[in-house]
């Protein structure tokens, strides 16, 4: 008996939902539009921020330490340093560059016209060297100092100023990105809440009558909640759809012209953002309705 009542209640509530979706098409259109636009803007912001982060972290991971060894060290002795460098905890990658390899790559860089070998004679002025990458760009300074203390190391170079500037820049990009996202998120919530409040204001009479004929608060609340969820979901789907299409074409175009730009094109990661936006739309719709309906339930 009790379950029958519940089923019936669910049926009547669904009836109310569909009726109002049909009847209040203009208001619903406004609600969907607001949700779609706010979430779209939020999505654009999100994509900008994650791509900026991606670009800066790629730049960070390209920071490397050049270690030049003393002239009088043989190649064998030089090679014996590699395991010692690798043992330093923050070191991620150790590359040995012998003086011969260095000469070859220098030749390639300078081109064929300059007869490097001829002008140098048999002498190779280049030292043996190591290229070291750290796991954390922040550790570069410390690692460089430690490497410099090894016997046989002549000079350590890592472009200290550049690294510090880059780190500062990425920190800023991070903070500003988060602030912009927070602002966009707040404005999305505010816009959606205002729209639901307007929708409910137009229907306060209905709520009032429901309460007067003895509807429980939940009987009144459910249709509005479900409607909020449906409208939020539709709005979010629209936003995600437009975002998906435009991001796809935009990144394809960009990568055509600036191929080295490390833009995010990992489908799973993007999906995660889109799903987040969708969930955000649903939650915002539900919360917006729940908060606004509360005001009119106090009868």
């Amino acid at each position: 008996m009790f379950t029958l009542m519940l089923l019936r209640q669910a049926y009547y509530i669904l009836q109310e939902v569909f009726r109002s979706l049909k009847r209040n098409s203009l208001l619903n259109f406004a609600a969907v539009g607001t949700t779609a636009i706010s979430l779209f803007v939020l999505g654009v912001g999100l994509l900008l921020v994650v791509n900026t982060n991606q670009i800066t972290s790629t730049m960070e991971s390209n920071i490397e330490i050049m270690v030049y060894l003393k002239e009088d060290i043989s190649e064998k002795e030089a090679l014996s340093l590699e395991p010692l460098f690798s043992r330093i905890s923050e070191v991620k990658e150790v590359d040995f560059i012998s003086r011969d390899e260095a000469l070859v790559s220098l030749e390639e860089q300078m081109g064929e016209e300059t007869n490097l070998r001829d002008s140098l004679g048999d002498e190779n002025p280049l030292p043996n060297a190591y290229k070291i990458k750290t796991s954390e760009p922040r550790e570069v300074g410390a690692v460089a100092a430690e490497v410099g203390r090894f016997p046989g190391v002549e000079k350590v170079r890592y472009g200290q100023e550049v690294v510090e500037k880059l780190l500062k820049l990425t920190n800023w990009a991070h903070t500003i990105g988060l602030i912009i996202l927070a602002l966009l998120g707040v404005s999305a919530i505010f816009l959606i809440a205002t729209t639901t409040r307007l929708t409910l204001f137009a229907r306060r009479q209905e709520i009032n009558i429901m309460k007067y004929v003895g509807a429980t608060d939940w009987f009144v609340r459910w249709p509005f909640l479900l409607e909020g969820i449906i409208l939020g979901c539709v709005g979010a789907l629209l936003a995600v759809g437009v975002l998906y299409l435009s991001y796809g074409t935009l990144t394809a175009k960009l990568q055509e012209t600036i191929s080295f730009l490390p833009l995010i094109s990992d489908g799973r990661y993007l999906m995660w953002i889109y799903e987040g936006l969708l969930a955000g739309g649903i939650v915002l719709g539900a919360i917006g309705s729940a908060i606004s309906v509360r005001k009119y339930l106090r009868v």
Binding site: M5, R8, Q9, Y12, Q15, I209, M210, V213, G214, A215, F219
Partner: peptide
Amino acid sequence: AFAMKVICAS
């Protein structure tokens, strides 16, 4: 009928 739906009449 609305008043009856509210009390879950069949």
